[in-house]
């Protein structure tokens, strides 16, 4: 089980829900970042060699290697394209968001 901040059910924070002090459960997310993208990385699984360089250099940590191939969490990918540039085999292409 991977530890990471996760998106919770959307709710309005009422007076009672607002904590008494400025401390709160770590890693509590209420929104995603997918709307930021104009282009998206697309992994060609046939070309991907699972070298993990894209995973290592992703500023948002949205790439994981599953079954030896890069997998992107599009909820949080901002489409910067660093992964595509870093990929030596050229397995990640950038495609326009529609």
């Amino acid at each position: 089980m991977i530890i990471k901040p996760t998106v919770r059910e959307k709710k309005i924070f009422s007076f009672q829900d607002v904590p008494e002090d400025t401390s709160f459960e770590a890693g509590y997310l209420v929104s995603v970042n997918s709307g930021w993208r104009s282009i998206r990385p697309v992994v060609n699984a046939g070309t991907c060699i699972g070298c993990m360089q894209c995973y290592l250099y992703c500023p948002d940590g949205v790439i994981s290697i599953q079954n030896g191939k890069a997998v992107i969490d599009y909820d949080f990918c901002k489409g910067c394209g660093i992964c595509s540039k870093i990929c030596k085999p050229g397995a990640i292409g950038m495609e326009r968001e529609r």
Partner: peptide, 20 residues
């Protein structure tokens, strides 16, 4: 990359795309 902890501790942040 291979030995790194797979957990993502800093995630979902609103930094600009490509933020170093």
């Amino acid at each position: 990359a291979k030995t790194l902890d797979q957990n993502e501790y800093f995630y979902g942040h609103k930094a600009c795309a490509g933020c170093g």
